[in-house]
Design a protein around this nucleic acid. Structure first.
Lengths: 213, 213, 213, 213
DNA sequence: CTATAAGCGAGACGGTACGTCCCGTCTTAGA
DNA sequence: TCTAAGACGGGACGTACCGTCTCGCTTATAG
């Protein structure tokens, strides 16, 4: 297989083959239609009720074509998401870690709360529990991307001395993203701005009472 | 099994009808067999590969009997879990909040890491994303139970003055359980004892550097 | 309902037990309700869509009660028919065989054509093909009854010299009832009065041309 | 099997779609296996105990394949019968109507009595009572075929002057086939050769005594 | 400037599990 | 003792999708 570079999921792609160099245009049309159909159905009926047959029908593709490129509906959806909605949540630094963090968390929560990203992320995380391959790609291609943005913010803060050098950055990132995911998936509390603010302040300040002085 | 009272899922049971009334004897045998089959298969083949047909076959029940009492495989599994594995993770207080918390978190991580509870919880949380009814029961009958234990520990600490009164206990609980769930589901880091220790210390102390003075 | 004697299906009844002497009234009430429900449903949804569960529900009986007395839905329906719709088609003799026959056949066709007897008979005959017990009772308790009326008419004609002594009466009866059943079941032609007249005339006169002189 | 033309059930087939178009090779194998399985099971367990699941299992097909082409087990069986057992009962003319008729009736009775055709025909006629679509195809594709052979014999006799011109041929055909079906379905008398002979003679000669001369 | 081979649509196929209907049996409580 | 009630084990139903498999058609370059 020639497999030039045009493929965007280089190492851990779910795609089993890259798009060949020769007949690119037909492929691309079909792939675009499949992505669009997948995301449309995802919004309309939800992930659980989504089927490859439905994607094929709506996109005007043959099931064969879908199976040629993706091994499962999760792979289609994830790939569709990565290719078409891969907007990074980027926040310009204010120069203060707490503010940067709060903006980042609030923006993340807003996206999860107000767009279809919330249910989609929840569904993909759910699917990842049943399919290790999806889990891997989801983690490496989606979660890690967002996590590295967060860790960048934290690193900047550390460099500025706004973070104790003893802090484990990985665990600190877990303390930010963990509660967000927890609320997204478990729905025991809202992902509103107040939550973002409280979360960041508490994580930064700690729970223990400040020593007097 | 504690199972002392006749009715174990009083308010928010997934069961659509109570076993009340006239006939009961056969029911209990069948239900016990169904629970056992469900959990056995859950351990052996995993949640995704579990089918109601397989539960029926292994338990010697008819599919109709299962469908009479539970609307989905998720409901069977969740009910089975609640009825037969409802061991609370209880930790005797050492008198110190940090120690209590660390023990609690470590015990929780150990259970998720070393028993079948980890995959089972992940699968149930995943299923909850596709089924609001399951989500509700899972949250109310399982998650909240564990969460209230944690909040009890925190409250005790608060009473002892080991916690700043300004702290939002709900968000604090999220900062404990969130990272645990996050690692359980996303698998980006281990749930080992060191993680428990770091997590608790960081959450208690906060990330910001202590003011010298 | 005439229903004077306690048991109307003495020898070849489908009923597996007779109605006991002691608790007659409850039985009778239940049976009447079951018959009524069965015939009502028969008219409403047809034989194929009829179920014992539906009869039980509509009649307010328990399935157990129905199964105690009848082995199948066919047995219930047949018994119900025999008990409540056993109107004989009796024709007063005009003194002429051809006229008697024509009246009898026309009356039979009219009943099959204009009442629910047609579909019911067809359904029972159909069921008899799948259940020898039903076949036996249907034949002995229903068909033979009507057939004996016909044979009585024929015998009277024979006694009056209106029938050739060489005629096989059984086959002659088949030549009357056969075409009627054939049209009822196969629906290739109508069961109207003209058919009755032509049938009788042709059977009586024969198909071969009369020798001239 | 005659089966020369590609399409055997042109107008009133039970099949809901033709096998037309692109893919065909697999289909024929599967269909043949389904027919064979259906007829084998019909002989072995009878029509009532026949299930589509059993046909699928024995034929090595999937249930879906059967349901893709036929709407019910009756349709499968009828189609199987029409395609593989469509032997006409043809009788070479002896030049005499009575003899031709007697041979035809005797051959028909023999087939119904000695082969599996008897139970099969009875079962199909029974099923036709519950399913108008089956009724139609059974009538048009099976009954009418045989009936037209009979009417051909009668027409030939009429042309030879062996039949009174006043005779209604349809009713006459009913007088032949009606008694046969009646005995087949009601089982009140045997379908042996003597019956065939008596039936034909009586129908031809008529029941009324011959005018002296 | 074809030819040719890959990708494509179409859709039948064997298959799994679904959730439902109704079966006929059973157990129970009450009249 | 019989009844109403209804849970039970069971068989088959007809359906939805699965993932695989031909089958011809389309089409874009390679010869």
């Amino acid at each position: 297989m020639p497999k030039s570079q045009p493929s965007e999921l280089p190492s851990a792609s779910i795609r089993e083959r890259s798009i060949g160099g020769k007949t690119r245009s037909r492929s691309e049309k079909a792939h675009a239609a499949i992505f669009q159909a997948a995301l449309g159905l995802l919004d309309e009926v939800g992930y659980a009720a989504l089927s490859i047959e439905a994607i094929a029908e709506r996109s005007g593709s043959a099931k064969t074509t879908i199976y040629r490129w993706w091994p499962s509906k999760a792979a289609v959806v994830l790939d569709a998401y990565i290719h078409t909605r891969a907007r990074q949540i980027a926040v310009k630094s204010t120069g203060t870690l707490s503010d940067d963090l709060e903006r980042f968390v609030a923006a993340t929560c807003r996206a999860l709360r107000e767009t279809s990203a919330g249910p989609a992320m929840a569904a993909l995380m759910a699917e990842a529990q049943n399919d290790p391959k999806i889990a891997q790609v989801f983690r490496e291609k989606w979660i890690e991307g967002r996590r590295s943005v967060l860790k960048g913010i934290l690193s900047d803060g550390l460099a500025r001395g706004e973070l104790s050098p003893a802090i484990d950055l990985e665990v600190l990132a877990d303390c930010i993203y963990g509660p967000i995911w927890y609320r997204l998936l478990n729905q025991h509390g809202p992902l509103k701005d107040a939550f973002a603010k409280t979360l960041v302040r508490q994580v930064m300040a700690g729970a223990a009472p400040r020593v007097s002085g």
